[in-house]
Write a protein that binds this DNA or RNA. Structure first.
Lengths: 244, 244
DNA sequence: ATAATACATTTGTATATACATACTAACAAA
DNA sequence: TTTGTTAGTATGTATATACAAATGTATTAT
């Protein structure tokens, strides 16, 4: 594995180092809780200072990918299951492809609508101003398992003409410079009403995992208001949290 | 507010500083997204170096309590709602009391049982070895809204004679030195079967938020295996996640 | 053999320093 | 009024250095 840091790059060294380490510890050599080279060595290999290297390692420790012990070393956390990385922000498609699930889009509607009070106040806009509504029915090849309703702030620059089959946030980032940064979610359960039952091809009254998601950009400005209705037996939401 | 750091203490300076800042930003003066003093000043006030101070601030930023901006300053994150602190590990009673909800215990059974294969393998013990099972039906004064089944690793030292009305993890920490560190959770939805419906005083088939929780100590050793069945309309699970 | 000791290794803590970069505000020029 | 420039301020990046504390290993004494 090549470990090369570009000192002339605009990207900060500790970010580059973090990326390299992330790739390194996800490579097959480090699956089993192996020790990393010690900090002095690593800093020499990467040709950055120990202080800078520690910045990178700190982040990975905080993210739960590494653990350190005085007098011993830094090792890769074992059981790197999916949930162990759940701290990182992920879009629906990323989540699914990380699990190796192919996605099929069953329905996709885009429209400009007048938002209701709830949505308008979330975006901090007047009720008369239109927002982009995106409806998606997605799932596996065998059948749909989630119905999404998304609303986007007018300022994100979507026209409604984009290719909504591609990962949305990658596109937003590249085309409009919008970086989704924070996601607040509320998860609850409810019964399928007639509408949802029909969409998800499930009986009326079937249990549904309901997920409200509020997405903000780097300046805490609202970007997206998202409602997701998941077929209960097809989706498990995993979270990992850590003290301190 | 007193901001005093003890340079002779055994506690690392950056930890002391972090604690002080945590208290500071939770005080009434800082509720509204106010700017902190700048790093140079703060480091002078606390009589620690800027580098050390930055260690403390970094953690708080990572925890979502502060945000920093080049050329502007460091400010307390607004809307310090419950969910903004959801990264911190919380027990059920802590969660509820943080929301100002009084808890009532409707049922409480403690027993030593032979675990099934799933639980035994989670704890890494033989199926012949008994574990402590704790069943709790809890809720508001008006009625129960969650049914818990917990299993504890034999080595945590519980006898079954403890006072299970007190916060469990506080007790474990004080009495047995067990520090719960990591919690992995899986959240899904299901229909109430006859048993759950009766416990939660809800119709059979009603939607239930089902929460599996795996708790580990500081050494990643399993402590608790917990199943929680929440009445759908009474509980919302909130998560906040942040990129980078 | 076992226990105590000493040593080397590795991360943890703490500081000082220098310069880069993003933002604000004030002022000047068009 | 608007635009551009500049100075000041605050965080961001990066390094070098020194010592502390925990751990594991090898050595020595019993």
């Amino acid at each position: 594995m090549k470990l090369k840091i570009d000192h002339k790059s605009q990207v900060p060294l500790h970010i580059q180092a973090e990326e390299l380490l992330r790739r390194l510890i996800e490579s097959p050599e480090y699956t089993d809780g192996k020790l990393l080279p010690n900090e002095m060595e690593l800093s020499k290999i990467l040709s950055i200072s120990r202080s800078t290297l520690r910045q990178s390692i700190n982040k990975l420790v905080y993210d739960g990918l590494l653990t350190r012990k005085k007098g011993v070393g830094t090792k890769v956390v074992e059981s790197k299951s999916l949930s162990s990385k759940s701290k990182n922000w992920m879009s629906f498609s990323q989540e699914m492809s990380a699990r190796g699930i192919p996605i099929k889009n069953f329905e996709l509607h885009v429209s400009w609508i007048l938002p209701d009070k709830r949505i308008a106040s979330f975006f901090g806009i007047k009720e008369g101003k239109k927002v982009l509504k995106l409806v998606r029915l997605r799932g596996r090849p065998e059948g749909p398992f989630v119905y999404f309703e998304s609303y986007f702030h007018p300022l994100v620059g979507l026209t409604g003409e984009e290719d909504y089959k591609a990962p949305l946030y990658e596109m937003l980032e590249k085309a409009h410079g919008i970086i989704a940064m924070v996601s607040k979610e509320e998860i609850s359960a409810l019964s399928a009403d007639e509408f949802i039952a029909e969409k998800l091809e499930t009986p009326i009254g079937a249990p549904i995992l309901f997920r409200k998601r509020f997405v903000f950009d780097i300046n805490e400005k609202p970007i997206e208001y998202n409602l997701g209705y998941y077929k209960a037996d097809s989706f498990v939401y995993t979270v990992e949290s850590r003290r301190e």
